[in-house]
């Protein structure tokens, strides 16, 4: 028994010792680390996978899905091997975040827009031709619009200018990133048009989120799985239905479908890329310039992104909305020259 105890103590000491020596070594890291948005996560994963497959000298990057905000905090914590090299973001970096970064010595950041994420509302050609606003969409789809149970059965109940046709919307399930974008970009916007809701946001954020983003489940909104092609087929079969899906599917099926205007703006590449269309948001990666030479494979990883974000690229296959050519060209330039982000551009 005595010897066993000694063994245990020895192993315990070994573990502590190991921690002690490891802590002192600040060493190097041979794997890229990226943190951030869960929307960008699947795309980053695909790029990482493709890099590791095509270049056996580079170990597959570690991608952590923390959410954009939490990722920014980690990314901005400092320069060094213990901090991530890349932040995946589904929105632009905020000025306050940049200042936080700069305070910790992370003032050389490369911002690269890798693509767009858009929620398109569409119907079959010859459909109802609704001219939607975020408020209309919110009133039609929310479980409890402005806190009261949703009683709207037809589009006319939502807005007297609309025809008296039953509301039938095919959209993404709650696990989908498109659903998140729908909540953030459209529903919350329509919800906040009401002053009482805006006030609620400050007093009870949880209740506000619940009222503003919960989607009705009485049959007017139909979860259509992750397969956007299926929604396209259903819309063709029923011209009076409305579909919600990634913008690239609308583009692909433009012979059968037409995009619905939101607030008077039709979803097109141009309107999504200049954000006049409310359902659009850009996806970014932020690269720490100070790490470019220190971390092996970081340049290659960024180059792999540039290779993948084209129209026929890997990321479009994964379902990302491809950025317009001008943005792509600009991003490609940034990705090859590592142009630094100018803080004055940020809001």
């Amino acid at each position: 028994m005595k010897s066993r105890l000694a063994l245990l103590t020895a192993s315990l000491c070994a573990t502590t010792l190991l921690s002690a020596c490891g802590g002192a070594q600040s060493g190097s890291r041979d794997q890229i680390r990226a943190v951030g948005s869960s929307t960008v996560y699947p795309f980053a994963k695909a790029v990482a996978d493709s890099l590791a497959k095509s270049n056996s000298a580079i170990k597959s990057p570690i991608i952590e899905s923390t959410g954009t905000g939490a990722g920014m905090k980690l990314f901005c914590a400092g320069v060094g091997v213990q901090f991530p090299d890349i932040e995946n973001a589904s929105r632009r970096m905020k000025k306050s975040e940049y200042e936080d970064c700069a305070k910790n010595g992370v003032d050389k950041i490369v911002e690269i827009q890798v693509g767009l994420d858009g929620v398109a509302f569409a119907e079959a050609k010859g459909g109802l031709g609704l001219k939607l606003t975020p408020e209309d969409i919110y009133k039609a789809l929310a479980a409890n619009p402005y806190g009261k149970p949703n009683s709207a059965k037809t589009w006319k109940d939502v807005n007297p200018a609309f025809p008296a046709e039953p509301i039938l919307v095919y959209g993404p399930p709650s696990t989908s990133g498109t659903r998140d974008a729908l909540k953030e970009l459209i529903l919350t916007k329509g919800c906040d048009a009401d002053a009482a809701m805006k006030a609620l946001k400050d007093s009870d954020k949880e209740q506000h989120d619940k009222v503003c983003t919960e989607v009705r489940s009485d049959g007017a909104y139909v979860d259509s799985g992750e397969n956007d092609n299926l929604i396209v087929q259903k819309l063709e079969a029923n011209p009076k239905a409305v579909g919600i899906f990634g913008f690239s599917y609308l583009e692909e099926n433009s012979d059968k479908l037409m995009g619905l205007t939101i607030g008077g703006v039709t979803p097109t590449y141009a309107s999504i890329s200049d954000f006049s269309y409310p359902g659009a948001r850009p996806l970014f990666i932020y690269v720490k310039a100070a790490h470019l030479d220190a971390i092996k494979g970081l340049r290659e990883f960024v180059a792999e992104w540039a290779k993948s974000w084209g129209k026929d690229g890997l990321l479009a296959k994964q379902g990302m909305v491809v950025s317009p050519d001008a943005v792509q060209a600009k991003s490609a330039k940034t990705a090859s020259e590592f142009t630094l982000l100018d803080a004055a551009d940020l809001k």
């Binding site: 794997q31 980053a44 996978d49 952590e64």
Partner: peptide, 13 residues
């Protein structure tokens, strides 16, 4: 909670 494609080589990877 990360995408780790390479199986870990040791206690610190």
């Amino acid at each position: 909670r990360a995408f780790v494609a390479t199986p870990p080589e040791g206690l610190t990877s």
